[in-house]
Design a protein around this nucleic acid. Structure first.
Length: 924
RNA sequence: AGUCGCGUAGCUCAGUGGUAGAGCACCUCCUUGACAUGGAGGUGGUCGGUGGUUCGAUCCCACUCGCGACUACCA
């Protein structure tokens, strides 16, 4: 084996082998275990958040596969309606073309082409990350079968009265020219103004003042509203004002919605351009005057001189004219929240249009109940509150989009405008008895992308057909996703799953944290702080990274900032770390916290861990050789260390089992890391050396150690495999034959079971003693600056029978690991030379000073120890002096406290005696 | 405005009603035949503040200060 672990070459080779053998497919045996991937945008690339979630999903998948479950990780991608259409439109624009220069068919063909071109990026990234998805089942939301599912779902919902078409106010994007759902609106606080406008009363005797942030909408006002209890305006209710600039007469109405304390207490009502005003308009039967074109320019419903003006231009003109007319009473600075489109960023306009809606309340009710009843469980549990909060206040879902890329709505219109919903035109004609002579025209609109996503857990398994896959893998086991799409996706899958499958789509919903950069900022292209996960895997030069981060940036100032930040953050680019190190980092990071800062130094640490594991494997293979240590009938004898490491391995596996059960990947990572490094490498490998190198050790003992070495190494690869699939495969291939384990790949081996490694209390006790001894000597060495290579004599004082026993039996370990020259057990009362001291309970470990140790330094060290011991002793005594403590605390707590007290008393006595002795020396 | 979350070592974060932990960073020593991407030892925290419950609170409760996210918004 190479001295340094080099991941690059072997990762690709190994993945290809796994994939070509079809090992990612479900085995067909065992209990079904299924995860559906949150489908990324087909034309996108995977970012750190994806890589993080994929790591966790793959770890779960590999773990369950190795546990013998019939495991499927279902891959696929999403057509991402608006996002994808926008990308292709931008490409057209770059060539001086517009979407509308093409026919719909031409444009859609163009998008498909782009999808074919760029659609492979994600798959190749996933391969590099080691994702063990069943590629043979790859799905795309616009596959024929999944499209059929979309149509079927739409028709069924319509048949059940859960989909309707209606004219109402929607969030309209005047740039993209489409409706959006409430969730796609991003409200941001911006600086604006509050204009106080004066509307004259009809009879000419005075005026009312209304306050507005959008003066241009006054052209569509159809009332002024006051609070019914507002005494200032009682006398005006029912009267009329003359709307400036238009001359229209509009009524003053009373509505409890109006807050008398805000502004003037008078509100202009524009039912066609404000959600609240719309509701008020409905209550009072007000006219709805639409004053905008779809592009949000003023239309023919306004005085001629304003027609055709863009809304922002119109605002200036109207304010100017009103000011001139003396009708602007006041202008205040005002913070307001401006609704913008999630994708395009355009200011949205509440706009009256015909759209399709899902009547959501009945669907939400069963989805709420399912979580209340525990049929689906959120992990961490707290997220169910967020889910409930939204579900209980949910509003109907606008599902139609005025786009070309997506699932066309399965509705047809005749020339009279009657609408028919059906799976296709033939079905529609048959269902409604429409003659061939009736011309039908299909709805031009497509469905919200999230409509097809909502069906994902069952549409991917063949629904609406009753397929074996659907039967087996629905409900899925767990959904792994971020909290940012609980509403968009999770809640909707719950509703649709319950509606169409009659059961929840997943047993557990594991909500991951959000990956932030090392400063706690969201990673975004505009901030220039995104990291391509593969750049961490393969490494990247600084210049290439800068180029990558600044390319395609519209605004040069952003590019400059991104470049500066990048050069500061990665002055030498990013070193290669390998996939396993990145994956292990993600696992270790996956605490229940909702925000996770990604720090490259963590990855470096885990790359070192890979290297450590690699070198441990080198040591084992070099020590054990090619042959199976336990072959034939040769006797095998296990040392205390051999028994100890098996026992410790069992404890570690138990911790990992619990961690996977609880989705505590951080605990799993920690347990594996600590076992591997601190127990297997730091202690066990060292403890094998005295045995393997000893001339007087029996062949049976050597066989036992070799066997344990290679068996533990082999089992450790299986234990680590879900988190670090590549390096473990590579090592396993070498270790397994020697460990007597057959099989083509570690990924199909059984995961170790804690039950197979019962705790060996005695071995653990003995090794703990050995460790304490060695640590005691090392501590003296370290603090007294005695070179590790210097062999030193050690004396034991106050040794009990057991200490003597252990000392005798484990002499070889002590001698080698503490690098001892001689080990002498002092008889009671025997005089000890001046020494440095360390305590193991009542046993004192002495290192004679004889030229090695500076007495003053040792005195200082002991003073410090004494201080600590006294402090702890005082604490313990204080507690025990408290009658209430002794009376009320559980007996075992009191007992422990008494033991501590005794222990510290002994320490204080012993250290004090040593100090006295030293002081004698220092005071000649 | 409502909902939720966070505040623990220099940094990033675990954690528990009874002895406060890890990684990184830092200091000292060491190239010993798996590994310097390493080994050995060490420094470092009044667990945001105040009060309450308790024999005992970093942990539970209340209030408070400082952050943050989400949802809905007053024109």
């Amino acid at each position: 084996m190479e001295k340094i672990y080099a991941p690059h070459e072997l990762e690709r080779r190994i993945y290809e082998r796994w994939e070509s053998h079809g090992w990612f497919a479900p085995s067909g045996q065992g209990a079904p275990y299924c995860i559906v991937i949150p489908p990324p945008n087909v034309t996108g690339t995977l970012h750190m958040g994806h890589a993080f979630q994929h790591t966790l999903m793959d770890a779960l998948t590999r773990y369950h596969r190795m546990r013998g479950d019939d495991t499927l990780w279902q891959p696929g991608t999403d057509h991402a309606g608006i996002a994808t259409q926008m990308v292709v439109e931008r490409q057209l624009n770059a060539h001086g073309q517009k979407r509308t220069d093409l026919t719909r068919e031409e444009f859609v063909a163009r998008v498909w082409k782009w999808k074919e071109q760029s659609g492979g990026t994600i798959a190749s990234q996933m391969r590099r990350l080691g994702d063990s998805v069943d590629w043979s089942r790859d799905r795309f939301t616009m596959d024929p079968q999944l499209s059929r599912a979309v149509v079927d779902a739409f028709v069924r919902l319509h048949e059940d009265g859960l989909i309707y078409r209606g004219k109402r106010l929607v969030n309209w994007d005047p740039v993209l020219l489409t409706a959006l759902s409430d969730l796609e609106v991003q409200s941001e606080e911006e600086e604006g103004h509050l204009w106080h406008l004066s509307y004259p009363l009809e009879e000419g005797s005075g005026h009312v003042i209304v306050a507005t942030t959008r003066p241009e909408t006054m052209l569509g006002d159809t009332a002024v509203a006051v609070n019914p209890d507002d005494e200032r305006y009682q006398h005006l209710i029912g009267k009329k004002v003359r709307l400036p600039l238009t001359g229209r007469l509009i009524p003053i109405i009373a509505d409890a919605y109006v807050d008398p304390a805000f502004g003037s207490g008078c509100v202009k009502i524009t039912p066609a351009h404000d959600f609240n005003d719309y509701e008020i308009g409905l209550r009072h039967g007000l006219e709805q005057i639409n004053i905008f074109t779809p592009r949000a320019a003023l239309n023919d419903n306004v005085p001629e001189r304003f027609r055709g003006l863009d809304r922002f231009e119109a605002r200036k003109r109207i304010v100017a004219e009103l000011t001139e007319a003396g009708l602007v009473a006041r202008v205040d600075k005002h913070k307001l929240t401006v609704p913008r489109g999630e994708r395009g960023g355009a200011v949205l306009e509440p706009y009256l249009t015909d759209q399709w809606y899902v009547r959501i309340a009945p669907l939400a009710a069963s989805a709420i109940a399912a979580v209340e009843q525990g049929r689906t469980r959120f992990v961490p549990e707290n997220w169910e509150k967020t889910y409930f909060e939204w579900m209980r206040n949910i509003k109907d879902w606008c599902v139609s989009r005025q786009l070309w890329w997506g699932h066309r709505i399965p509705a047809w219109y005749d020339e009279q405008g009657n609408v028919y919903v059906g799976r296709d035109e033939t079905e529609v004609r048959a269902k409604h008895g429409l003659a061939v002579s009736v011309t039908l025209r299909q709805d031009e609109d497509v469905l919200d992308t999230w409509f097809s996503s909502a069906l994902w857990p069952f549409s991917t398994q063949g629904w609406p057909d009753k397929t074996p896959a659907l039967e087996k893998f629905y409900p899925t086991s767990v959904l792994v996703t971020g909290f940012d799409i609980i509403f968009f996706w999770v809640a909707r899958m719950m509703m649709m799953g319950l509606k169409f499958m009659g059961d929840v789509p997943f047993r557990d919903i594991y909500i991951t944290g959000l990956i932030l950069d090392e400063n706690g900022d969201k990673m975004s292209k505009t901030k220039g702080n995104v990291i391509d996960p593969l750049d961490i895997v393969d490494g990247i030069e600084l210049e290439a990274l800068v180029a990558k981060r600044t390319s395609g940036m519209m605004q040069p100032q952003f590019a400059a900032r991104a470049e500066k930040a990048t050069r500061k953050q990665f002055p030498e680019g990013i070193a290669p770390h390998g996939t396993d190190a990145l994956r292990f980092t993600f696992a270790a990071l996956a605490s229940p916290s909702r925000e996770l800062r990604f720090d490259l130094s963590r990855v470096a640490g885990y790359r070192n861990f890979c290297n450590k594991l690699w070198n441990a494997a080198r040591f084992v293979t070099m020590s054990v050789g090619e042959a199976e240590p336990a072959s034939g009938s040769a006797p095998v004898e296990l040392s205390v260390a051999d028994r100890w490491i098996r026992s410790r391995f069992g404890r570690m596996v138990a911790a990992v089992e619990a961690a996977f059960r609880d989705y505590r990947f951080d605990y799993a990572a920690t347990a594996l890391y600590e076992f591997t490094w601190y127990e297997f490498c730091d202690w066990y490998l060292e403890l094998t050396k005295p045995v393997l190198h000893a001339q007087n050790a029996s062949e049976a003992a050597k066989r036992g150690t070799r066997l344990t070495l290679v068996e533990t190494l082999e089992a450790l690869q299986r234990a680590l495999h879900p988190l670090m699939p590549f390096i473990t495969e590579e090592i396993w291939q070498r270790a397994a034959p020697v460990a007597g384990r057959a099989g083509p790949t570690v990924m199909l081996q059984r995961y170790p079971l804690a039950a197979d490694y019962p705790t060996d209390e005695q071995a653990e006790r003995e090794v703990a003693w050995i460790q304490a001894f060695i640590l005691a000597v090392r501590q003296i060495r370290g603090e007294m600056n005695i070179a590790p290579s210097k062999r030193i004599p050690v004396l034991l004082k106050g040794a009990a029978a057991q200490d003597k026993d252990y000392t005798a039996r484990h002499h070889a370990y002590l001698q080698r690991l503490a690098n001892i020259e001689t080990l002498t057990v002092l008889e009671p009362g025997a005089a000890a030379p001046e020494s440095a001291t360390a305590l193991i309970g009542e046993l004192a470990v002495l290192v004679p000073m004889a030229g090695l140790i500076d007495a003053a330094a040792e005195a200082e060290r002991l003073e410090k120890l004494l201080g600590k011991a006294k402090q702890e002793l005082a604490k313990a005594r204080g507690k025990l002096a408290n009658e209430n403590f002794v009376r009320n605390a559980p007996p075992d707590v009191v007992k422990t406290e008494r033991e501590r007290e005794a222990d510290f008393e002994r320490q204080v006595t012993s250290i004090t005696a040593q100090l006295d002795c030293l002081r004698g020396l220092l005071r000649p």
